[in-house]
Every structure is written in structure tokens, then in C-alpha cells.
Design a protein around this nucleic acid. Structure first.
Lengths: 238, 238
DNA sequence: TGTACATCAGTGAACGCGCGTTCACTGATGTAC
DNA sequence: TGTACATCAGTGAACGCGCGTTCACTGATGTAC
């Protein structure tokens, strides 16, 4: 067995393997979309993809491994959706960038409700996250993204939001490790503002994704737009 | 079989029956608290209460009936917690009442995380809500409670929140049936404000109940307090 | 180019489990006269 | 007060199901010489 840089043939095997892996994950998310988190079962995936249930063991050592991979994927997809909306507006004023970020967040959640539930909702039945799981890290990435919003607005927002008595000890070290180097001008109160903005957006989106908002209003997007306008105003970015 | 007003003896039977019913529900919530929504199984409840699994059929025709009762109970408990906090402050200024309401909301959610999840989270695995279910009504009650907050603040909040172009058609009829008679002075933009406030509070509390906030900050209550202060300021109730 | 061998994706049957639900029943509690 | 009967909470065994996972295997794909 030479160390053999991927020959064309192993390349093909690997490609097939990657495709099947992707198909399994895609099917799992489809199942969750239509049947809730408990619909993610190896047997259902097998049924849907035409494989044998245990063929999946060639791709994931265990059902929990599959779910872990699913969560990581979905976190990354969300983070990329909002990050790229943020990056795309680099030349825009902060208000427009914040609007773009929030719209991307909501749009992704509505387009991928099963993903949103996987990240923010109840865990899949029977699922226990692995100990050093990467999921928290990926979730934190969204949080860091919001710190960028707070950072962009802080110069204007400080008069209204800067007085609160937060200090660095109020926050998780792993979060600060990512936030402080990236946004050296953001004080503790600014990080708190980021978390509060997270709360605002999460609240309306979660209510909508879980169907509670739709039971009260027929215009959730109007509501979101108005909320966002008010948020931007409260950040001093009228 | 005479129509016989409850004699002492049937009274006792009924009392025992009510106690067992309550024990079943309590056990179900305990199970959910420690094992997630999928831990609510008839067999687990039986194990925990020392009954036979099928003895439960004497109390609930079906597992879904049990879950339905659970959800209704828990909605009522939440609604009563916040309603009574609101009522208790009748003599206070609006800012204090709103603070009391929000604190009661968060406190209830943190004390009953399994209940919060039952109402606002993913449904219990395999559970399908009955068609004309009372659950939406109970959930709506919380929503109507928030309309009271908006109504109390509206006189001051209107300059900042009143411009939005909402009209009655933007809202669900069943919601308006409850809100308009109770708060005749509240215009459509005020109802929208209520839903937005709901979003604010729901967001932070949901993030906390699901453990996402705790992974970023060690002071979620400080965060909530500051958020609430800012909300009250934005309502013109500095 | 041809043959012998290694790899490895996938099969098919089986395991033990916990689940919701049904059935025929028992034994204690309460009721009628 | 005593007896005969109705009620009804609960038992215990059984059903069929879908699940995650294991096992021994087959057959095609790729590799070495």
C-alpha cells in the first residue's frame, strides 16, 4: 500500500462516497422537515434512499454521529448565509448592512426550518451530543457575526446602550477569544448589546419558524421589517 | 342510578381519581424535564408511578390525549403566572408593571423549562395535536396578556411606534376578538407592538431555556434586566 | 494485456429493545333493598 | 345490619411495530505484477 497521492480511480471512489454521504444527510434533513426531529432514523433514511439500513454504517459509525454531522453542517450553512450577506454590504452604511444581515438570518431560517430547529430547538430524540462537540463552536460563529453588527453600530449606539455595568467577566471566555481580537473597540456593554440583538432577532424568527407568530398575524414580514427599523433607530442609526 | 348529587363516597373516588390524574401529569413533566420530550411515554410514566402501563388508559384514552392535557395545563399555568404578576401591580406605573410581567414570564420559564419547551418548542415525538385543540387558545392568552402591556404603554409609545402602516387585516381574527374588546384604544400598530414585545422577550428567554445564552454569558439575568430597561425606555416610559 | 489478489460498498437476516395499545381478568369499593 | 349486585381501578400477558445495531456474506471495483 504505497502512500499514493489520490489516483484518478480512488478519486472516483471518494467522489461516490462523498455523494452518498451528502445524499444521506440531505435525506435526513428532508425527513426532519416533513416529520419532525424524530423522523431522523437510519431505517427511514435507508428506505428513502433505497439503501439497506445498515449500509449507512459505512458512512457514519452511529446514528448520533450522523446527527452531529447534520448539526455541524447546518450551523455552517447558517453562518455562511449571514456572513456573506454581511460581507456583501461592506461598502454600505451600517444600517443597511444590519438590515441585510437580519434579513438573511430570517430568510435562511424560513427556508431551512428543520435546520433552525436542529440548531436552536429541542435535540433529536435520544440524541446526546458528543463531549467535545463542535456544534457549540459553530453556533458561536453566528454569535460572533452579531458582534460585528454591534461593532459597526457601537459608535452611534453607545449613548443609549453604553451605560450598563457589564465587564468582561460577564461573558464566556471562548466567546471573548473570538470577539475581542476581531473587534478591539467593542467594550463589554457592546458585547451585551450583541447578545440582546441576538435575542430580538431570535425571538421573532423562532416564533415564526415554530408557527406561533403565524397564528396571530398574517404579515410576519411586515412585523419583522418594523421591528428591524425600530432596532436600527434604537442603535442611533436612524 | 339516581342523578344523586355527589355523595361523600363518590366524592372520595373522584378525589382519588383527580389525584392520580395529577400524579400522571406531574410524572410526565418530570420525565420530560430530565429526559427531553421523547421521555414522555406511557410505560415510563407507569414505571415511575408504580402503575401498570395500561392503567393509564383509565385516565387518558390515548397518549396524545395525555400530551394535549399537559400542554393545556402548562399554558394555563404560564398565563396565570404572568396575569397575576400584572394584576398585582395594578396600582403601579406602567414601567413597573411591564417589568413585573416580564420578570414573571422569565421566572416561570426558567422554573418550568420543560413546560416552556412543550408550549414553544418542538412537539413531542409522534404527537399530532387534535384538530380543534384548545392549545392555540391557551397560547393566545399569553399574547393577549402582552397586548395589555402595549395598551398600558401606548400613550407614551405612540410617537416612536405608532407610524407603522398596520391595519386590522394584518392580524388573526381570533386574536382581535380577544384584544379589541379588552383594549379599545389600541390601534393596529399597538397590536403589532405587542407582538414585537413578545418577540423580544421570547427570544432572550428561549435562548436561555435552551442553553444557548448560558454558553455565551454567565449573567443572563443582567442581560435580561438591561434589555428590559431599554425596552421600557423605547416605549417612552423612561 | 491477463491473471491473482485486496478493497470495500452494500446485502439480508437476525438480535433485543421499548413502545402504544388490546384483551380477558380480579379484587376492592360503593349501592340498593 | 346484612346480603346481592354493580362499578370501576388496576393487573398481567400478549400483539405488532419500528428502531439501532451486529453478523456473516457477496459482488463489483480497483491494484500489483
Amino acid at each position: 500500500m504505497p502512500p499514493a497521492a489520490a489516483t484518478p480511480s480512488t478519486g472516483r471512489r471518494e467522489r461516490l462516497r462523498a455523494e452518498t454521504t451528502a445524499e444521506i444527510k440531505r435525506t435526513a434533513l428532508d425527513l426532519m422537515r416533513s416529520g419532525g426531529p424524530d423522523a431522523i432514523t437510519l431505517r427511514a433514511i435507508a428506505r428513502e434512499t433505497g439503501m439497506t439500513a445498515n449500509a449507512i454504517y459505512g458512512y457514519f459509525a452511529t446514528r448520533d454521529d450522523l446527527v452531529t454531522a447534520l448539526i455541524a453542517d447546518v450551523c455552517t450553512a447558517l453562518a455562511e448565509a449571514v456572513d456573506s450577506a454581511w460581507a456583501a454590504g461592506a461598502a454600505e452604511p451600517p444600517a443597511a448592512r444590519i438590515r441585510a444581515w437580519a434579513d438573511a438570518f430570517r430568510a435562511w431560517a424560513l427556508a431551512n426550518p428543520e435546520g433552525f430547529r436542529l440548531i436552536y430547538g429541542d435535540p433529536v430524540p435520544g440524541y446526546r451530543a458528543p463531549d467535545g462537540g463542535a456544534a457549540p463552536d459553530a453556533a458561536r460563529r453566528v454569535c460572533v457575526g452579531i458582534a460585528a453588527l454591534a461593532d459597526a453600530a457601537w459608535a452611534h449606539a453607545e449613548p443609549a446602550h453604553g451605560g450598563a455595568d457589564f465587564d468582561w467577566d460577564d461573558f464566556d471566555a471562548a466567546l471573548l477569544d473570538k470577539v475581542r481580537p476581531a473587534f478591539p473597540a467593542l467594550p463589554p456593554a457592546g458585547v451585551a448589546l450583541a447578545l440582546r440583538i441576538w435575542g430580538h432577532l431570535h425571538g421573532l424568527v423562532a416564533l415564526e419558524v415554530y408557527g406561533h407568530l403565524g397564528a396571530q398575524t398574517v404579515s410576519p414580514d411586515k412585523l419583522f421589517r418594523v421591528e428591524l427599523a425600530q432596532l436600527i433607530r434604537s442603535l442611533g442609526l436612524a
